[in-house]
Measured scan of single mutants.
Amino acid sequence: MAEQVALSRTQVCGILREELFQGDAFHQSDTHIFIIMGASGDLAKKKIYPTIWWLFRDGLLPENTFIVGYARSRLTVADIRKQSEPFFKATPEEKLKLEDFFARNSYVAGQYDDAASYQRLNSHMNALHLGSQANRLFYLALPPTVYEAVTKNIHESCMSQIGWNRIIVEKPFGRDLQSSDRLSNHISSLFREDQIYRIDHYLGKEMVQNLMVLRFANRIFGPIWNRDNIACVILTFKEPFGTEGRGGYFDEFGIIRDVMQNHLLQMLCLVAMEKPASTNSDDVRDEKVKVLKCISEVQANNVVLGQYVGNPDGEGEATKGYLDDPTVPRGSTTATFAAVVLYVENERWDGVPFILRCGKALNERKAEVRLQFHDVAGDIFHQQCKRNELVIRVQPNEAVYTKMMTKKPGMFFNPEESELDLTYGNRYKNVKLPDAYERLILDVFCGSQMHFVRSDELREAWRIFTPLLHQIELEKPKPIPYIYGSRGPTEADELMKRVGFQYEGTYKWVNP
């Protein structure tokens, strides 16, 4: 592979701008107003304001973009700056750019259920340069409990009458099928589907988006991507930290609602779906819905739930269990780990287990898709061969690698495990991989909904998990304890083995 010439960040961002501006969906010269509902909250200060700053800094926003914060707290732009700027990672050389960014910011205080507050917000936006005809993007960085009041008031008082209007809704989209349907029906009564952007930030990850290209742009994968060759698929999300004093919020939802029903299920769809007619948003989402419709409700015998306990040999936070978090209700049975087996009941995947695993306070930070292939028929190497695996590593250190057998150097035919490896950090030294939120917010500006969740996708996802969630809430089974920093409950490994996964433990990928 030829040595790549190092590029400056300015040059890299210039390439990104060229890609972005050559499309006809990006209205570079139009006025846009980006409204952050819930501007005083954690999500706004840690993710949304920093993301908008990065896009502005790199010249990736339309030229005439204004940012308006809205929340109940009586704040000023200076207050917003004070709480969000520490997350910007701005350099001293960017000081003038930073001043320009905050000059485009404003803030309006108001209630979430008060019509007069929204009329005041609308008047404020109209007073901005060309504000009355601007395109408006409303980001709901809010708890779902206020979605209905907020969307109703936005629709009645704050819509642009000339430009387009788009609304970005953060997960969780309800707690179960019934609450999700209620919320979807409410929002759909106010906005068209092409105006609604239900954001799952995992769909903005580079390697998640790469799944489609790997599958449908490489001839070698087509013939082997089926039940005849693939023994099982494992989708993993692991965090090495616990709730760390923020367990009160987590306890309301648990690990299945927080990660599995959305992030992991979306990745499953991209692995299992048929080739779409095109890369058009609805063509892709149509195929994802077909996959979900082929999955039956989760069966309790295919589920393992766990909850982390303190590690007596650990240090600091590792010595504390979930129930030691003062914000967690006493005696909570909320799971911090889950392993679930699903089956896609169609011709391509009949009988292939899709194993979804996620948890907190585990032994490493990792998100990946792992396809394990069947054993080689007619073994001539005296059971020395391990199964081939194709691994798409989402985070950290984005990579695609194939675990395969090669001859060990020497005189004899002794096979050993090795890999074919594409590590993004080595291959793409001159490429700026956008943060997931950067990519998705740019998608909203461009009107691309491919990486957002459609209402029928959402409904099918909740259909699969709601009976299990209701059973857990009714019966309150005690989750299996696992030690902070471990791989999780051993019962999860036993479940995976029972459905056909072979864990060798003899080879570990190392970032080159």
Score class of each variant (00 low, 15 high):
N135M: 14
D176Q: 04
L177W: 06
L137S: 07
E19M: 15
Y118L: 07
P92C: 14
T236N: 07
N105Q: 10
E18N: 14
I167V: 13
F250Q: 01
L203N: 05
E239F: 01
P240R: 07
L130Q: 15
S188K: 12
H155Q: 11
R219K: 08
Y49W: 09
G59Q: 07
I48V: 09
F138P: 01
I230V: 12
G247K: 05
H124M: 09
V12C: 15
L142G: 00
A115P: 08
I48K: 04
T51N: 13
I33T: 10
T76V: 09
F66V: 09
G41S: 00
I52R: 03
Y139H: 03
G14A: 15
Y118I: 08
G242L: 02
I196H: 01
F216K: 04
G174C: 01
F102V: 05
D30H: 11
P86M: 09
L16N: 15
W54V: 08
R57P: 04
N210G: 08
Y197C: 05
L7Y: 15
G59M: 07
R219M: 08
G254W: 00
E148K: 10
H129G: 15
S40H: 00
K238F: 02
G248K: 04
F101H: 00
F250L: 01
T10P: 07
F21M: 15
A90T: 14
M212Y: 04
A149E: 15
I80A: 06
I168K: 00
P223K: 08
I230K: 00
G254F: 02
P92Q: 10
A103C: 14
M37S: 07
L214V: 12
D194H: 09
H124A: 13
F216Q: 05
I33G: 03
N126M: 13
L7M: 15
V77N: 13
S29W: 11
R9H: 08
G69E: 02
M159E: 15
T65Q: 03
R120D: 14
E99I: 08
F237K: 04
Q209L: 04
H27T: 07
I220D: 00
S188T: 07
N210F: 04
D200I: 01
H201Q: 04
T91C: 11
G204V: 00
K171Y: 04
S29K: 15
R246C: 04
D24L: 05
A103Q: 15
G174I: 03
L183N: 01
A39Q: 00
S189E: 14
P240W: 07
S29F: 13
N185L: 11
F101E: 04
K171M: 02
Q28C: 13
N122G: 12
I80T: 05
L16K: 15
E170C: 03
S117C: 11
W54M: 09
N153W: 09
L121Y: 01
T10C: 09
M37A: 15
G131L: 08
Q178G: 11
L142V: 11
F21Q: 09
L98A: 05
G163V: 05
K152S: 14
F26N: 11
G163L: 05
L183D: 02
R175W: 04
P92R: 11
I162S: 11
T51M: 10
R219D: 01
I36N: 03
N122M: 13
F101M: 00
R17V: 13
N64G: 07
A115V: 15
T65Y: 06
Q178P: 12
E18Q: 14
A6R: 15
Q28D: 09
G38D: 01
F26Y: 15
R182M: 15
L190P: 01
S184D: 08
I67R: 04
F237H: 08
S40M: 03
E239D: 06
N126D: 14
L96G: 11
K238V: 01
S189I: 07
A217Y: 05
K171C: 02
N165L: 11
T76N: 13
K152D: 11
P144N: 03
E18G: 13
F191G: 03
R74E: 15
I220C: 12
N105G: 02
L235N: 01
F250M: 00
F138Q: 03
S73Y: 02
I255W: 02
K82S: 10
T145K: 05
K89Q: 12
F56M: 06
Y249K: 03
A6W: 15
L55H: 08
I67Q: 03
G131T: 11
R166E: 01
N105D: 00
N226C: 09
W164Y: 15
T91W: 08
L20C: 06
R246A: 03
T91N: 12
I52S: 04
C232T: 11
G254N: 08
R136G: 06
N135F: 08
E252S: 10
E252N: 12
E252H: 15
D79T: 10
E93Y: 11
K89V: 09
G242T: 05
R57M: 04
A217F: 04
E170Y: 01
N229L: 04
A141R: 02
Y70M: 12
R175H: 13
T31H: 06
L75G: 07
K171H: 05
F191I: 05
T91A: 14
V233R: 01
L75E: 07
P144R: 02
I234R: 12
N135E: 07
V233W: 01
M159H: 12
S40E: 05
G23F: 13
F66T: 07
M125T: 14
